[in-house]
């Protein structure tokens, strides 16, 4: 008899995904992180040394610090707005009894994702720009003298990002909310909780894992977005991905681009861990000892 294998044969099925992750994430990230602390390209120049000058340059230049702050702010505001807009929609979707209605709403949530990000961003430009639908209507009616600054700023960037990423929030939340037993809210109501109180006491805390997952997804997508901030911000809003692209494509300074990427990743990870921690604390907090 052969000795029983310690590894389940199913486990080998994750091998392709693992290999993909290794080749196209860990290796590039390692190379990028390595470049960011080297004085030059080791392939071209054999006598490179370790250096912290790329990080010094970033920390010493307010342009990069401000754009990091702006990136994180856009990410946080986009996540918060997507959560506030997406939660009621996800709740509605998860609790819908009619199968037809459920399918229609699901289609409505997913359909925008079938259109490219560039196309959707240009749609927002036609709505929000100085001569776009909103401003043209309001000034045409004489309600405004000058157009409202709806884009080429963080507001326009956030509006477009929320629109693009809210389906990720809705789908993640709907999955979690759909698994919460509706009888729990009924039990809470039978014990004297108003429908709103029952939601706050039962469904909301039980959907925290979905809030966490959806927020992380949207935050990660929003801080790494390039096309939308580029088009909606109109060079007035500089986010870190735009500066990284500039370093790679225009300046060819791969080491400095690597340093910017490492800092963005590190700061995001710290924020994500902190967010996770706070939500965990909220979930464990109880009103009764």
């Amino acid at each position: 008899m052969s000795t029983p294998s310690r590894v389940s044969p199913i486990a080998w099925l994750v091998a392709p995904a693992g290999l993909f992750f290794l080749l196209f994430f860990l290796v590039p990230f390692g190379v990028m992180a390595l470049f960011s602390v080297l004085s030059g390209n080791p392939v071209q120049r054999p006598n490179v040394t370790l250096t912290g000058r790329h990080y010094d340059r970033m920390l010493g230049d307010s342009l990069y610090i401000e754009s990091l702050w702006s990136t994180l702010k856009i990410g946080a505001v986009t996540t918060a707005a997507a959560l506030l807009l997406g939660y009621p929609l996800a709740h509605w979707l998860a609790r819908m009894r009619s199968r037809g209605g459920h399918a229609l709403l699901l289609m409505a949530v997913i359909a925008p994702m079938l259109t490219g990000i560039v196309v959707r961003t240009f749609a927002w430009i036609t709505i929000l720009s100085d001569r776009g639908v909103i401003n043209a209507t309001l000034t045409g009616l004489g309600l405004l003298l000058a157009p409202l600054p709806l884009m080429y700023n963080e507001l326009g960037t956030v509006i477009a990002l929320v629109h693009i990423y809210v389906p990720f929030m809705v789908l993640t939340l709907a999955g979690v909310i759909g698994r919460i037993d509706e009888r729990l809210e009924e039990a809470a109501m039978s014990l004297g909780a108003s429908p709103m109180r029952a939601f706050l006491e039962v469904t909301l805390p039980l959907s925290l894992p979905g809030i966490l997952a959806g927020s992380l997804l949207v935050f990660a997508l929003a801080i790494s977005a390039y096309v939308t901030p580029y088009l909606m911000g109109g060079q007035q809003v500089l986010t870190l991905p735009m500066l990284i692209y500039q370093q790679v494509a225009a300046t060819f300074n791969l080491a400095f681009a690597g340093a910017l990427g490492v800092v963005l990743l590190a700061v995001s990870l710290i924020l994500i861990v902190a967010y996770n921690h706070v939500l965990g604390r909220v979930a464990r907090r109880e009103d009764l000892a």
Partner: peptide
Amino acid sequence: VHHRDMGMVFQSYA
């Protein structure tokens, strides 16, 4: 429901 003051035990316990 929440003003009816009834105890309710559910099949799934809830």
